[in-house]
């Protein structure tokens, strides 16, 4: 039996990876509902390794490329690609974004309009990352929890973890000294009049934002990046920036209903890449930062590898003792 503290994205992903290998797992989650306390609740749910490379290390691609198939076994993955656009006066941002990334093709106004008719005539230059995808984070967490249970895993909700666990996936609650939180503010819009089928990124020198379709006329709009551990509601400035960007994508968003606004804290290490760290007999998986859904599969499989090796070593020691 492997015990895991935290049934957020990292904890559930590890439990799933272990359970699939036939290992008995038990998760302890402080909150009473899956995802209620999880940073992943506020995520975009983009599987966008090539776009993320713009401001992240090469590992987001090497670790992220297995995410598509991994998630597709568990929850619907929409392989519609990412369309990156910029207002005319910020056209230089498209060139810069293109230099830092790969696996895209340049698209002009006509193709942008063909891909997303809602944007027709509004942008004359963009990049299309055809291989990228998105999922619905909250649904994915629920589906992942169900998959763990289906594989025989046990999830104890509303239950504090015991002092000693095998795996700690408690995000900002973990006692790791170099971990910091990067606050992200987001909003969910309901706007059935606007039909957008893939992730859009609006480049802007001050506030780049993304819009991810959630289906049923809903869109997730995100997200700010603030070096802060303040978990309070979004600021007016942040919401103004998000809303302004949505309006710049399509003025039809002016009629959208703002059904939710929220702020989450992303756990991050100094290089903004996730880590597996062993301390006092516990393996910590943490620091998924803004790449949770993209990097959780690779990190969870690595955590499962290490947990099983560790368990086998302990068994050997026990036998030889």
């Amino acid at each position: 039996m492997i015990t895991i503290a935290g049934a957020g994205l990292a904890g559930l992903a590890c439990a799933y990876a272990l359970a699939r290998r036939g290992v008995a797992v038990r998760l302890f989650e402080r909150s009473g509902v899956i995802g209620a306390d999880s940073a992943a609740r506020y995520a975009g749910g983009m599987l966008a390794p090539w776009c993320e490379r713009e401001s992240a290390e090469e590992e987001v691609i090497s670790l992220g490329s297995r995410a598509f198939d991994w998630w597709a076994r568990i929850t619907p993955v929409h392989r519609r690609g990412t369309l990156v656009v910029a207002p005319r006066r910020d056209r230089a941002e498209v060139a810069r974004f293109g230099r830092r990334t790969r696996e895209y093709r340049q698209v002009g106004g006509a193709e942008i309009g063909a891909l997303e008719p809602a944007l027709a005539g509004r942008f004359d230059q963009g990049l299309f990352f055809e291989g990228e995808a998105h999922l619905d984070p909250r649904r994915a967490l629920r589906d992942l929890a169900r998959a763990v249970v289906d594989l025989g895993g046990e999830i104890s909700l509303g239950t504090e973890a015991p002092q000693q666990v095998d795996l700690d996936c408690t995000g900002m609650a973990a006692p790791l000294p170099s971990l910091r939180s990067v606050r992200g503010e987001m909003a969910i819009l309901r706007c059935p009049e606007v039909e957008i089928s893939r992730t859009l990124r609006l480049l802007h020198p001050r506030t780049p934002i993304y819009l991810v379709p959630r289906g049923d006329g809903h869109y997730m709009l995100g997200a700010t990046m603030v070096e802060s551990d303040h978990a309070g509601p979004p600021t007016l400035r942040a919401l103004m920036e998000l809303m302004g960007a949505a309006y710049a994508l399509s003025p039809a968003f002016a009629e959208a209903e703002v059904v939710e606004t929220g702020a989450g804290l992303r756990p991050a290490f100094p290089d903004n890449l996730p880590r597996l760290e062993r301390r006092d007999g516990t393996l910590f998986l943490n620091g998924l930062y803004r790449h949770g859904f993209l990097l959780a599969p690779a990190m969870a499989e690595a955590a499962a590898d290490q947990s099983m090796e560790h368990r086998d070593e302990n068994t050997r020691e026990f036998r030889t003792a």
Partner: peptide, 16 residues
């Protein structure tokens, strides 16, 4: 210093 830092803090970032 963004205002958030006064409520919560950017302590992790300042430490680095």
């Amino acid at each position: 210093l963004r205002r958030e830092a006064a409520n919560g803090s950017g302590a992790g970032f300042w430490d680095l």
